[in-house]
């Protein structure tokens, strides 16, 4: 048996797979079901200070090669996380670590959120400054500016003792520079990447963009090479722990991402292609790969190409 258990920012994960934010994260029971199906950890859907509507449908669709979404970060607000999601997820003991993903339109709100969400005792706080689906409302994501990314990180860092990881955007000219700035502002690690683009797809018979938001983030198999490269760049720039996410569907994909520098691998769109049971399948495939290749502890392969 190869050891898949791995430590991330001082938190122990039974295996390196983590549910990425935005997928199957509306309720505590949904998160628990993902753990039941094999995930080593889960990330909540992005939590806002107040209720946030999200976009009208269609908000997502998939093809053989890529997936697109513009859900628009719908959420009932932090009150729901306080009253429902965290207490229910924690009832009878947490089945796996939970990462609280927070999002805001104003830098100051990230501070307020970090303070409140810390009281819920999340294992890690993930700061979402990189959603490409809400630009009409919020402008360019903070993750696209060295200054803004560092400012958000610094504020969140000052409001919590929990490990803070920053979710970065691939849609920048130098992701390593952004990561370095966040590391300098106190980030403990990163999650990368958020969706690519935004992209656009048009139904030529209806002469309308398919997503109601017109544009949406690209995910799925097509973006894996971009994600692997970004993780490699971030690792090289900072050496900090990374949740590598983007286009991972199989155990082999997960191994590749870890070789680029990820300690954990995030999966969201994988659920579209393999259903929620895919978590367990990916874990088995990782285990099998490690066994066949004489890897006793999965940690050995992290950033092994660097």
């Amino acid at each position: 048996m190869s050891k898949l258990e791995i430590d991330f920012c001082g938190v122990k994960f039974r295996n390196p797979t983590v549910l990425a934010s935005g997928v199957l994260g509306v309720t505590a029971s949904s998160l628990k079901n993902v753990v039941k199906n094999g995930a080593g950890g889960v990330t909540t859907k992005s939590i806002w200070l107040k209720e946030h509507a999200g976009h009208k449908s269609p908000v997502m669709f998939g093809t053989d090669h890529y997936f697109m979404n513009a859900v628009g970060l719908s959420d009932a607000g932090i009150e729901k996380a306080e009253k429902e999601t965290f207490p229910e997820y924690s009832k009878g003991g947490r089945p796996a670590p939970i990462i609280a993903n927070i999002v805001a339109g104003k830098i100051a709100d990230f501070g307020k959120l970090a303070e409140r969400v810390s009281k819920l005792d999340p294992d890690i706080i993930e700061v979402n400054i990189s959603c490409p689906n809400v630009e009409d409302e919020l402008g360019k994501p903070f993750a696209c500016s060295v200054v803004d990314a560092a400012a958000v990180t610094k504020l969140v860092r000052s409001k919590t003792k929990k490990p803070v990881i920053v979710k970065l955007s691939p849609n920048v000219s130098n992701i390593g520079e952004i990561a370095k700035a966040c590391a300098g502002a106190g980030a403990d690690g990163f999650c990368a990447i958020n969706t690519v683009g935004p992209g656009m797809a048009i139904d030529i018979n209806l002469r309308k963009s398919i997503l109601s938001n017109r544009v949406g983030g690209l995910s799925g198999p097509a973006i894996k090479p971009v994600a692997v490269r970004c993780v490699y760049d971030i690792y090289k720039a900072t050496g900090l722990p990374i949740i590598g996410t983007g286009g991972i569907l199989t155990g082999e994909d997960a191994i590749e991402m870890m070789m680029a520098g990820a300690r954990l691998v995030g999966m969201g769109t994988m659920v579209y292609y393999r259903e929620v049971e895919g978590f367990g399948k990916v874990v088995s495939e990782m285990e099998e790969w490690c066994r066949k290749n004489g890897v006793k502890n999965v940690e050995e392969i992290v950033a092994c190409i660097s």
Partner: peptide, 22 residues
């Protein structure tokens, strides 16, 4: 429901947490 194929998590039922659309 939003997606219809078990990804968005909008239609999950308590306590199983399984999406009704799927």
């Amino acid at each position: 429901m939003k997606c219809g194929f078990g990804v968005c998590g909008q239609c999950v039922i308590d306590d199983s947490g399984e999406p009704i659309c799927k």
